[in-house]
Amino acid sequence: MLDDQTDIAHTLGVTPDFNAGQEAERRIGFLMDYLSASSMRAYVLGISGGVDSLAAAMLAQRAVERLRDNGHGAEFIAVRLPYGVQADEADAQKALAVINPDRIVTIDIKPAADAMLEEVRREAGDLFKDGRTDFHHGNIKARSRMIAQYALAGAVGGLVIGTDQAAEALMGFFTKFGDGAADILPLSGLNKRRVRAVASHLGAPQELVFKVPTADLESNAPLRPDEDAYGVTYDEIDDFLEGKTIAESSRNRIFAAYRASAHKRALPVAPQDWKAGEPKAR
C-alpha cells in the first residue's frame, strides 16, 4: 500500500506543474480524440450545479463543437438528475446556461430510488442499522443517476463522462458504481483548486467556481459540505496533493481515508490480482 505523499499524488495523476490554459486544451483534445477513436457520437454527463460537473461539461461541449467543425458528427447531452426538487436547482440552471449544451434532458430519480429502497427494506429491513438508512438511500440515488446516464448513452451511441478528480479520489468521496462509474474522466489528475482554475479559464462565473462543494445525497443533511464529511479542508487536501506541508492531524486523516477507500479505486478483484491485505489500486 502506498503511504508516501509524493507517491500518492503521482498515482492519482497530480503533476508538479500546472497551467490552466494548457490543461484545458489538453483535456479538450483528449475528449475529441477519444470520441473519434471510439466511433461513438455523443458525450453524456449529469449536471449537479457544482464546479466539477460544470468544468467537465464545458470541456465536453467545446470538444464536440470542434469535432463538428472538423466534419465529425458529435453532440453533448447534459442531464439534470434531481431527486424530486433539488435544493440548489438555481445553481444547476445557472450552470446549464453557462455550458449551453447541445441538448438538456431532465430525469427525476426519486421514484426509482425510493422504490428500490422500499423493496430492499421489505425483504431485508433487519440488515439496515439504525440511523444508516438515509446514507444507504444516498448511495441508491447516486447509482440511480448513473443508470439513467447509461440508458441515455446507450440510446444515442454515447459515452458517459465522470467527474472524478484527484481530491475526491484521494478521500474516496464518491459512490462506488454510482458517480464513480463512467467511461471517461476528463478531470482526472486535477485537485480541487485546479478544477476551479480550469473552470475559470473556460469562463465559468466565480459564484459557481467557488460554490461550497456538496454531494447532497442524504435527505436528512441536505447540502452538507464535503469538508464536514472529510474533517479536513479542500485547501489541505490540495496542498497534500501538491506536495506541501500540512498539519500532522490533517495528514493522518488523509492517509486514513486513502487507505480505507482503496477498494473504491480498484477494479473488481480477481484471484491473480489478490495479495492478502492489499487491494490492488487502480
Score class of each variant (00 low, 15 high):
26 R>H: 12
81 L>K: 04
41 R>H: 14
18 F>Y: 11
106 T>E: 14
136 H>V: 05
134 D>Q: 03
64 V>K: 00
34 Y>Q: 15
79 V>W: 15
73 G>E: 09
21 G>E: 13
127 L>S: 10
58 M>H: 07
125 G>Q: 08
27 R>F: 05
97 A>N: 08
16 P>A: 10
104 I>T: 15
129 K>W: 12
94 K>C: 03
120 V>K: 06
104 I>K: 06
126 D>Y: 05
110 K>R: 11
72 H>K: 12
71 G>D: 08
71 G>F: 09
91 D>Y: 10
31 L>Y: 12
25 E>K: 07
56 A>H: 05
16 P>H: 11
44 V>K: 00
137 H>F: 14
101 P>L: 04
53 S>G: 13
29 G>P: 01
95 A>T: 09
139 N>P: 04
80 R>L: 10
90 A>E: 14
124 A>Y: 08
62 R>S: 09
81 L>T: 08
133 T>Q: 13
132 R>D: 06
138 G>W: 08
52 D>A: 08
53 S>R: 09
37 A>H: 02
80 R>P: 02
33 D>A: 14
112 A>C: 11
72 H>D: 01
84 G>A: 12
116 M>R: 12
127 L>E: 05
25 E>V: 06
71 G>C: 08
75 E>K: 15
102 D>F: 00
60 A>F: 07
125 G>P: 04
96 L>V: 00
50 G>D: 10
21 G>T: 02
32 M>Q: 13
34 Y>F: 15
87 A>F: 07
122 R>E: 15
26 R>N: 15
54 L>H: 07
39 S>Q: 13
16 P>R: 12
85 V>D: 10
25 E>P: 00
34 Y>L: 09
141 K>H: 04
134 D>F: 01
73 G>N: 08
81 L>Y: 04
117 L>N: 03
137 H>L: 12
40 M>T: 11
104 I>A: 03
35 L>Y: 06
137 H>C: 05
100 N>P: 00
34 Y>T: 15
61 Q>N: 07
44 V>L: 04
17 D>K: 15
72 H>A: 05
126 D>F: 01
